[in-house]
Design a protein around this nucleic acid. Structure first.
Length: 433
DNA sequence: TCTGGGGTCCTAGGACCC
DNA sequence: TCTGGGGTCCTAGGACCC
C-alpha cells in the first residue's frame, strides 16, 4: 500500500503562505528569466493561464484582471518543502521524497484507520507549514498517483469525480464498481508515465481512458510500445512494479543550463556564460562529494523563432576525473570553442557533468597522492565556504581568471591577457597563495 | 539470388517526469 | 522584444569483437 502526498500548486501556495494578501488572488510564479509560467494558483487557472505559458502573453491579464506574477524564490520553496516532507513522513514507516512537492509513503499494509491518519497528516501540514495538500492511497504507486489526482480534481473541479474523494482518496475503500468508474472518468493521458505522444498513439488505437489502458494486454503494451508502458498497465491492474526508493540513487549527471534574456551571437559573452555554468555545476558536484569524468557543453538557437537553426554540443573528457572548478571551466571553454560558429542568434547554452563517480575511491586516493592539487584543493574548499557564507557568486572563477563580486554588485574582474589561475585541460593547476 | 550469429559498448534521440 | 531547468530511462543503430 502506497500513499502520495502532494502540495497543491506548490510554488504559489508557498508564496501565499508568506504573503496573506495573495490568498484568493490569481497568482503565478515565473521561471528563471521570468520567461514562462511554472506554477499557478486556482484563481490564475480560472483566468485561463496555462502551464508553461510565456509571460509576455499574460500582459492583458496582468493589466486588466489583477494577475500577480512573482519571480521564483527557490530557497523559500526548498525550505517549506523540507518542513512539509518531515510532517508527511509521519504517515508511515518508509518515505521517498519524489520531488520538491511530492512524497511517496510506503509500508502502509496493515495500518488501521489509514484514511483518518492521512486526513490528520494533511491537516497538520496545512496548519504548520501553510501548504494545502492532497493524499492518494493505493496498492501501487501509479494508483496512488491516480487517487491523488482524484482527490485534487474532486475538490477543484466539482463533478469530475465523486465529492467523497475530496482531498483524501483511498482506492482500497472503493468497491470494484467505483474503481472502474474512476478509471473510466480518467483520460489515459492523465496516468503517470503516459505523456502526450503515447496518449496520442493510444488514442489512435481506441485506448482513450485509464480503464481502456488497464484492460490492455501487457504483451501488446510491451511489443507495440515499451517495457515502461507495460509496467504502467500492470500497476493499473494492481500489481506493484515500482518500488519505493528511500535513499535517492547517486546522481548520474549534473547540469547547469540557462536561456538568455537576449540572444547571443559572439564568443565572449558566451564564454563568460559557459564559465559561470561550469562553476555552478562544480559547486553542485562538490556538495555531493562527486567528481566528473567528462563535461558536455552545448548551445542552440531558439526553437520558437524563425531563421537558421544551430544546435551543437561537445563532450570533453577529464582525465583524471575532477571536481575542480578551474579544470571544469577550462574544459567547458575548450568544448565551446570547438563548436562555436559566429552569426547565430543563440538563445540557450549549458553545461552537463557526466561519468560521475564518488570522490573517495581507492584509485582517486592514489591519484590524489601524486597530484596533490588536482582535486579537493584548499582553494576550492575556501571558495565554496566563502560563497556559502557571503552568498552565491561572491567569489568565482572567470573564464580568464578569478572574479570578485562585491556586495554592492560592482563586478571587479581581473583583466588578464594571460590568465593566471585558469588551467588548460590536463594541466595540474598551480595555486598561488 | 544467396553473404553468420551473438554479444558488448557507445551514442543520439525520444519520451517522460516535476 | 519576451517561450524554464534539471533529471531519468529506454531504444535503435553503429562499431567492434570473436
Amino acid at each position: 500500500m502506497f500513499a502520495l502526498i502532494d502540495g497543491n500548486n506548490f510554488y504559489t501556495s508557498a508564496e501565499q503562505a508568506f504573503r496573506c494578501a495573495l490568498k484568493g488572488q490569481p497568482v503565478i510564479v515565473a521561471s528563471n528569466n521570468d520567461g514562462c509560467t511554472i506554477s499557478r494558483s486556482e484563481e490564475a487557472k480560472a483566468l485561463g493561464v496555462k502551464m508553461g505559458q510565456p509571460l509576455f502573453q499574460l500582459k492583458p491579464l496582468i493589466a486588466h484582471k489583477g494577475l500577480v506574477c512573482l519571480s521564483a524564490n527557490f530557497e523559500l520553496y526548498g525550505d517549506l518543502s523540507d518542513r512539509m516532507m518531515s510532517l508527511a513522513a509521519g504517515l508511515g514507516p518508509i518515505q521517498e521524497v519524489y520531488s520538491i512537492d511530492e512524497s511517496f509513503i510506503g509500508g502502509l499494509d496493515g495500518i488501521r484507520n489509514l484514511t483518518q491518519r492521512a486526513w490528520a497528516v494533511r491537516a497538520r501540514i496545512e496548519q504548520w507549514v501553510g501548504i494545502p495538500c492532497c493524499v492518494g492511497l493505493g496498492p501501487t504507486k501509479t494508483i496512488s498517483k491516480l487517487c491523488n489526482k482524484v482527490a485534487k480534481d474532486a475538490e477543484r473541479k466539482p463533478g469530475s469525480y465523486p465529492a467523497e474523494f475530496v482531498r483524501v482518496c483511498n482506492w482500497q475503500e472503493m468497491d470494484a464498481r467505483m474503481q472502474e468508474d474512476i478509471l473510466r472518468r480518467t483520460p489515459a493521458g492523465d496516468i503517470w508515465g503516459v505523456g502526450k505522444r503515447i496518449s496520442l498513439q493510444l488514442a489512435e488505437r481506441g485506448i482513450l481512458t485509464a480503464l481502456d489502458l488497464a484492460h490492455m494486454p501487457t504483451s501488446i503494451a510491451r511489443t507495440q510500445w515499451s517495457v515502461v508502458l507495460e509496467r504502467t498497465v500492470r500497476e493499473l491492474q494492481g500489481v506493484s512494479c515500482i518500488s519505493i526508493e528511500q535513499a535517492p540513487p547517486p546522481k548520474k549527471q549534473i547540469a547547469c543550463t540557462r536561456s538568455f534574456g537576449h540572444p547571443i551571437s559572439t564568443l565572449d559573452p558566451l564564454t563568460e556564460a559557459v564559465s559561470e555554468f561550469a562553476s555552478r555545476a562544480g559547486e553542485k558536484l562538490r556538495s555531493q562529494g562527486l567528481r566528473a569524468g567528462a563535461i558536455l557543453v552545448f548551445a542552440h538557437t531558439s526553437p520558437f523563432r524563425p531563421g537558421p537553426r544551430f544546435s551543437k554540443s561537445a563532450t570533453v573528457t577529464l582525465q583524471p576525473s575532477t571536481s575542480d572548478t578551474r579544470i571544469l571551466v577550462g574544459a567547458a571553454v575548450k568544448g565551446l570553442r570547438s563548436i562555436f560558429q559566429p552569426g547565430h542568434q543563440l538563445s540557450k547554452a549549458g553545461v552537463m557533468l557526466l561519468d560521475l563517480a564518488s570522490g573517495h575511491s581507492m584509485q582517486d586516493d592514489m591519484l590524489a597522492e601524486f597530484l596533490p592539487y588536482h582535486d579537493q584543493s584548499p582553494l576550492m574548499e575556501a571558495v565554496d565556504h566563502l560563497n556559502r557564507r557571503y552568498g552565491k557568486g561572491t567569489l568565482r572563477v572567470g573564464s580568464s581568471g578569478f572574479e570578485h563580486v562585491d556586495p554592492d554588485g560592482w563586478r571587479m574582474k581581473q583583466e588578464r591577457r594571460t590568465p593566471r589561475y585558469t588551467t588548460r585541460l590536463n594541466e595540474v593547476p598551480i595555486v598561488r597563495a
